[in-house]
Design a protein around this nucleic acid. Sequence first.
DNA 1: TCTACGGATCGAAACGTTTCGATGTGTGTG
DNA 2: CACACACATCGAAACGTTTCGATCCGTAGA
Lengths: 332, 332
Amino acid sequence: MATIKDVANAANVAVSTVSLALRGDPRVRESTRRRILEIAQELQYRPNGAARDLKTRRTETICVILHDLGGPFYSELLLGIQDVATANDYNTIASASIGGKNGSAVRWLLERRVDGVIVLAPEIDNETIIRAAGPDLPVIVLDRDLVAKHVYSVRVDNEQGGYKATRHLLEAGYRDIIFVSGPADTLDSELRYRGYEMAMDEFSAKKSKRFDYMGKFTEEGGYTVGKVIASQGTLPEAVFAANDEMAIGLMRAFGEKGIQIPRDVAIVGFDNIRISEYVRPALTTVRQPMYDMGSVAAQMLFAALAGSSDLNPVTLPAELIVRQSSVRGMYV
Amino acid sequence: MATIKDVANAANVAVSTVSLALRGDPRVRESTRRRILEIAQELQYRPNGAARDLKTRRTETICVILHDLGGPFYSELLLGIQDVATANDYNTIASASIGGKNGSAVRWLLERRVDGVIVLAPEIDNETIIRAAGPDLPVIVLDRDLVAKHVYSVRVDNEQGGYKATRHLLEAGYRDIIFVSGPADTLDSELRYRGYEMAMDEFSAKKSKRFDYMGKFTEEGGYTVGKVIASQGTLPEAVFAANDEMAIGLMRAFGEKGIQIPRDVAIVGFDNIRISEYVRPALTTVRQPMYDMGSVAAQMLFAALAGSSDLNPVTLPAELIVRQSSVRGMYV
DNA sequence: TCTACGGATCGAAACGTTTCGATGTGTGTG
DNA sequence: CACACACATCGAAACGTTTCGATCCGTAGA
């Protein structure tokens, strides 16, 4: 494979001249520049990124670490990030956090192959992130409770979202509302529950306990919980599920038992995944501003890259989206 | 930032010893190795990936270039790729092809920052791919009609899929079946149409012309086409849409006109995106084996990396999934 | 004609690793 | 006691760039 040296030899100029020429530096005469370009083309010269990165100590690339690539949820987030990155002439790559501690993602964090990282992946632990972050590797954490040097955080207000969802049900007249939580260790679920508590207290309604109904954040998880709820003596008036996947699982379980939504039980989810609009009845949910989150995160990253170091954590508001699953007396 | 040299100095050993120690080479004594590790820890030493890549001339990373990250469609594909990559101790990154010719993705193709590339992005042109591929950068193209040196192809049998979908409708007794195509320039749509033709000919049914109904491969596109169809004098008996998104758009348009599916019109889509299962009536469609496609592509890539160069193109079969939207006399 | 200067090009060092041949040390064998 | 040998460590070159100061050349000003 041709290197810059080969090009220099073939063109009878110094290596440095080729380097300058390729970069379009005005110091090299136009005629020689054209000649060099031509020869480079002929030799199929392609620069070696690693060498350049090594020398310049910058990669002009940022990395987004996600739980799994292609989750429907991430599409908008990535778009928000990419728009900002592109505007800054930066490249964006995405990497899945699969493999955990010694997996793929860690090498992007630890081996300085990128200039900055945005992390939305619960299974990467705080310690790793703190170790990775440094003066020349800012890290933006999404939806994570972590403050550390060179680590900056952007979050969605899950608590307020949970509050909105619950209050919506309360205002519709429901009082016996249960909360179906995600796995015990997720912060998101916890915060949504706190919002639920706050609203329930405000209306002096009786809360379900934190761990009464706990699922796996997947449709299957919701389905299982739904079966349990349905087989108990009395149904609740409404259910607030910690995310849409679970809400949809609940709907399926209820459907199989002949329980009608929202007539018999109202349901509210969280996340506004694309399916929630298509499910019947369409699911009332809370939308997280994913595009904004991506965009804000990327902007903070570039601010950090530019030298700012006192970036305050940002919290973005969530938005209630009312559909049929929570509207009393509506059928499909 | 501490380098290997700093560690060597602090430990009073040569740089090469540190290098060996870190890699766990048995040549360095266990006691010194532990000492070095400890000092590295203390100094917060982190290897410089660029330097290593430069020296070893391998990155142990493959890159997947997709149209947009996070399309629901890609999730499985990436999983298939990652599983194989991980088994080979390789890392996987994904990059969006946004930006086209001089965009982000191109640098992964052209600047040798990865060991191999898998491309599923129509907007990257053949020329770029051919230029990028070389003895030390095999490229696997997905769903693309391209043969070239160091370029290998994996495809789904779109034609057979289109045939299956159409034949299914024909066997259900429909004869007046129209085909709603994607944008003119996409190969996939074209092939699916050919399958449609084949089946229609076999049953001596009258085909719609290739460009009678053309949408944008999005729900909006399907919706628009649906409006047009609905406002014409007579409805077809059935519609075969070139992908699910469009099929769902069609369903929405028909729904708004009071046209019932499948009673008034049967609908079949293509892709088996997740929503198609939740839409009412659930959409009959053709599943592309995305996981397999990813897995096969990755396997071919590693075969190429290992030196094989005579890898034959692979075509994977598509699978018909019958749901309610095409089953005569079923309502929801 | 000499000097100064700007433009074009060059040469060498540096970036942080890996790797290979060389070197130094201690142990067991004859 | 000399020798060979395995073991542990070292030193230097190389990977392909970028960058900075040096050099060379021709021209304008004195």
